[in-house]
């Protein structure tokens, strides 16, 4: 059962990473990290309940994550073509 705890710890590291980092790409990596942690927990639950519905779910999350990466990076790159800075601070034209 320590798998769960590992999953939980990874998830939290990913979450905090996302909140703290300013660089868009690194923030995105943290999201991937969180998704990975979730996959791990999914598989361990599937193992504990020994039915394999868990892996099917993991199968889908993997596909979804891959699609998300493609789209996300497209947006991030599109923004860079206009401006160099990648940090989240300077992307705050609309405050308030």
């Amino acid at each position: 059962q320590h798998y769960f705890i590992l999953g939980a710890i990874l998830f939290t590291i990913g979450a905090t990473g996302l909140l703290l980092r300013r660089n868009a790409i690194v923030m995105f990596m943290c999201v991937e990290l969180m998704l990975n942690a979730v996959n791990l927990t999914f598989v361990t639950f599937a193992k504990a309940l020994n039915d394999s519905a868990g892996q099917a779910a993991v199968f889908f999350t993997l596909i979804v994550a891959a699609a998300e990466v493609a789209v996300g990076l497209a947006i991030i790159v599109a923004i860079f073509r206009r401006r160099q800075g990648a940090t989240a601070d300077d992307i705050d034209l609309m405050k308030g």
């Binding site: 947006i75 923004i79 992307i91």
Partner: peptide, 14 residues
């Protein structure tokens, strides 16, 4: 518009 897309994306992924 791009910035909105980025913000929406990051929070949506989260």
């Amino acid at each position: 518009s791009q910035e909105a897309g980025l913000k929406y994306f990051v929070l949506g992924a989260f």
